[in-house]
Write a protein that binds this DNA or RNA. Structure first.
Length: 255
DNA sequence: ATGGTAGATCGTCTA
């Protein structure tokens, strides 16, 4: 089973990219972030024609998440239980015998800002939720745009992206480590120890051409799934396509 | 030098 995460930065714009990538990559489950679509505008009919069922939770202009799957998803959860949030950043569902949690983590703007405080509170709420979720679902995949680069191998310039910078700050990385301590494993790092493998490149400063990126899109697998994770990767070629998302799909394959 | 680009929306916010 191939499970992927992709921040599409507007599904309205990126639907042709998604269709092309679904055809070539042929994932079984996909978590999308930044769909930027109200639910009545979600292209579920077109995706069904390609063999994918959709569950989604969106809003216009900002945020928006979805889970696509070849077999129907059940027990759909919208948002973090008990955490009031107008921003549509979370959807979870069960596909077959695997629980999928799809997160569009708060960006945080800059260290010390109100949005940064919101990011840390939000991550704490996710931690509390996943602590329960892992007990209910030993086969757990937590994926999404984490807006945190796990370590220095995951940034093009560790001097710039340091422990006081947004997306790499000490508190953000500590929050991510706390999630991993629940018994989750970075699927990509089970198969690749190299530095310089990124999933996001800023649109500015020709960042992709210069490989000035970060790896912030993650697929985490639970203890029980770890021995079943046979491959992982990032489909960076999508970033070379015309009018691309600034993120590339990150995926794992489970036996 | 507080820039640059993209998306949604149409002046300005978010990333």
């Amino acid at each position: 089973m191939k499970i992927a995460s992709w921040n599409v930065n507007s599904l309205n714009v990126r639907m042709p990219h998604l269709e092309q990538w679904l055809s070539s990559a042929s994932p079984d489950v996909v978590g999308l972030q930044e769909t930027k679509l109200a639910d009545d505008r979600f292209p579920d009919t077109a995706l069904a024609a390609m063999g994918y069922r959709s569950v989604f939770c969106g809003q216009k202009t900002y945020n928006g998440v979805a889970i696509l799957s070849r077999t129907p998803a059940t027990d759909v959860q919208f948002g973090i239980p008990g955490f009031e949030d107008e921003q549509k950043r979370v959807i979870a569902a069960t596909v077959g015998d695997t629980r999928i949690v799809n997160l569009y983590v708060v960006n945080g703007q800059s260290v010390g800002s109100d949005k940064y405080a919101y990011k840390l509170r939000w991550l704490e709420a996710v931690h509390g939720w996943l602590e329960a979720e892992r007990q209910l679902h030993p086969r757990l995949v937590v994926l999404g745009d984490f807006n945190i680069a796990p370590d220095d191998r995951d940034v093009h310039d560790p001097v710039v992206w340091n422990d006081e910078h947004i997306l790499t700050s000490a508190a953000e990385r500590a929050a991510l480590r706390r999630l991993l301590m629940l018994g989750l494993h970075d699927g990509f790092r089970l198969h690749n120890e190299e530095a310089g493998e990124f999933s996001w490149w800023d649109y500015r400063q020709a960042a992709f051409r210069r490989n000035m990126g970060l790896r912030i899109d993650l697929t985490l697998v639970s203890d029980a799934l770890r021995p079943l994770c046979r491959a992982a990767g990032i489909d960076r070629e999508t970033r070379t396509w015309e009018r691309p998302s600034d993120h590339a799909p990150a995926w794992v394959e489970l036996d």
